[in-house]
Design a protein around this nucleic acid. Structure first.
Length: 534
RNA sequence: GGUCGGUUCGUCUAACGGUUAGGACACAAGAUUUUCAUUCUUGUAAUAGGAGUUCGAUUCUCCUACCGACUACCA
């Protein structure tokens, strides 16, 4: 039997990174089994629809490389949720709002077979009952006990039920939880579980008000119709698993019921509760894959993509948050994750997100890039003054030099700006520390030394593989040879030069800097430094 | 409150019922280096508590504590 799994987000806002992880695990599971990964939009809550949320979900998944096999249609390079049946999308539509007419008959079927009933209690009446129960330190639940005293088709005469259905539109269809049973369930991650039906409540399955099913009905019906074989979803659904088991049984679909796997939640890094939108702002990292602008308030939430993360790194860190391969390998591409993944190795407990590790993952992928790739990513970040001033070769060589000093490409400029322009100011503390009379006169001597000697530096001409290395060695020989012969302190003189070259005394090697900026610019910066300090 | 789930270094995690409880991130120290970073080496650091089963428990059972999810005509 073909493996068919689905990711079924609700378009009520931007997709959370925990949601992306759920999608990822579904995707990996499907690909490993040679099956299908399906995307379905669960928009049965007409009240909470957020414009743009659906596109956001599609764009986020696409950015991560998690492409659904079913559920989307490509139009002019843009993905949309499939509404029309096609060979690729045989179960369309994939938006529950577009499947609206389908659900009522299933709810009615349940009523006909005695598994559900009509309920006419108004929302106000129920919330009043809840408030009363709460005041008495109890909990009101609509269940096998209380339904006997409430307004529904189990208590009202048939005539009145018919009349109410015909004349009012605020009634609902509720599932009739069987009394006094034990539901035995199995979860692929958690194993066996049991729940007493008497602790469950009669959930609403269908609402006359908007003619829409609730999550529970729509979810079971669609999973059945779409022939889903495994349901891999967040742990917040665990409490409704017994209801879902009962629903499958009531429909008579037990033999094709999917297997379930509930994923632990992503937790706040510093304490309590699941990771939420606010935590990102507070702790300084994104909780969303992409930047999101709230259409109502204009409020902006940062995204991993905009923060400079590679999608590979984002996918990698998500995969390892709550799952491990059982080996010591930690860096995985999406392709490598497919054969390695297994639900058996998914962790039961919640995982706290850790930013440092996230940055480390990005660094790993950054290091795997070639200098040419990095140069292409770096160029758009250059100031307009420099964008077209430096060749691809120059940028690539700079990237090769600095790639191990950065976690993100967006740090490249700060690290390498001295290779593009002379410093506009010198660090005061470093000036105090290194611009001693001795050091200044030594720098003056080195200026003369460099002026009197020639050496090769960077060129846009094609160069042999170890050209740069040889140049740097020659520059170093010249300088260190002279400094050693004079018996000066290496750390003093070199840092004085670095201060003139970069504005402070931390960073790139002197010979590397000279190689890139060239002899003329080198002399220029030493001169300028000496003149401005004196 | 009720129901369900969870608990190994600060964090992510490994460990057929038998290991000096391992790895990674972070942190610290040392080495290398003209500085910083990289790299290399080393180090600090954990089985929530209590019973029980067992020759032997991180691992199985129970209790307690703590954490979390759910408790809507939301998903």
């Amino acid at each position: 039997m073909e493996t068919r799994v689905r990711f079924a987000p609700s378009p009520t806002g931007p997709l959370h990174m925990g949601g992306v992880r759920t999608a990822l695990y579904n995707y990996l599971y499907a690909k490993q089994k040679g099956g299908k990964f399906i995307l379905r939009i669960e928009d049965t809550d007409s009240q909470r629809f957020v414009p743009g949320a659906e596109d956001y979900i599609l764009e986020s998944l696409a950015w991560c490389g998690i492409m659904p096999d079913e559920g989307i249609t490509e139009v002019d390079g843009k993905f949309t949720i499939a509404s029309e049946k096609s060979e690729k999308n045989p179960h369309a539509p994939y938006r529950q709002s577009e499947r609206k007419p389908l659900y009522r008959q299933y709810a009615e079927q349940l009523i006909a077979n005695g598994y559900a009933y009509y309920a006419f209690d108004s929302a106000e009446e129920l919330s009043k009952l809840r408030a009363e129960a709460e005041a008495a330190k109890q909990t009101f639940i609509y269940n096998y006990e209380s339904r006997k005293t409430l307004k529904n088709s189990l208590t009202l005469p048939e005539e009145e039920v018919k009349k109410l259905i015909a004349t009012t539109d605020t009634w609902t269809i509720r599932f009739k939880i069987p009394e006094g049973q034990t539901v035995k369930m199995n979860d692929l991650i958690r194993g066996e579980m049991e729940v007493e039906t008497n602790t469950l409540d009669d959930k609403v399955l269908w609402k006359a008000a908007d003619q829409l099913p609730t999550y529970h009905l729509a979810n079971i019906v669609d999973d059945h119709l779409m022939e889903i074989t495994e349901v891999i979803r967040g742990a917040e659904w665990l409490p409704s698993l017994p209801l879902h088991y009962l629903l499958y049984k009531a429909f008579g679909w037990e033999d094709t019921m999917p297997r379930f796997a509930h994923l632990s939640l992503l937790l706040k890094p510093d304490g309590k509760g699941k990771l939420s939108k606010r935590d990102g702002d507070r702790l300084g990292f994104p909780v969303f894959p992409l930047k999101w602008t709230n259409p109502e308030t204009g409020e902006i939430s940062r995204g991993y993509r905009e923060d400079g993360y590679y999608p590979e790194a984002f996918v990698n860190l998500l995969a390892l948050l709550g799952w491990n391969p059982g080996t010591e390998q930690e860096v995985f591409t999406l392709e490598e994750l497919i054969p390695a993944f297994s639900l058996e190795r998914v962790i039961k407990s919640g995982a706290k997100f850790n930013v440092d590790k996230a940055k480390w993952f990005n660094e790993q992928f950054l290091r795997r890039r070639t200098p040419a790739q990095l140069a292409a990513e770096f160029r758009p970040m250059l100031n307009d003054d420099f964008k077209d001033k430096f060749s691809d070769k120059y940028l690539a060589e700079v990237c090769a030099l600095i790639k191990e000093r950065a976690h993100f490409v967006n740090e490249f400029w700060d690290i390498s700006k001295a290779l593009f322009a002379a410093p506009s100011a010198y660090d005061e503390n470093d000036v105090k520390k290194f611009c001693t009379p001795d050091n200044l006169s030594h720098a003056e001597e080195l200026h003369t030394l460099i002026a009197e000697n020639s050496f090769p530096t960077f060129t846009d001409e094609e160069t042999p593989e170890n050209y740069k290395q040889e140049c740097c060695e020659k520059i170093e020989e010249l300088l260190t040879g002279y400094i050693k012969a004079k018996e000066w302190k290496m750390g003093q003189v070199m840092n004085t030069l670095r201060l003139f070259f970069t504005g402070n005394t931390r960073g790139l090697g002197i010979s590397d800097i000279i190689y890139f900026i060239g002899r003329e610019e080198t002399l220029c910066r030493i001169r300028k430094g000496l003149d401005s300090i004196r």
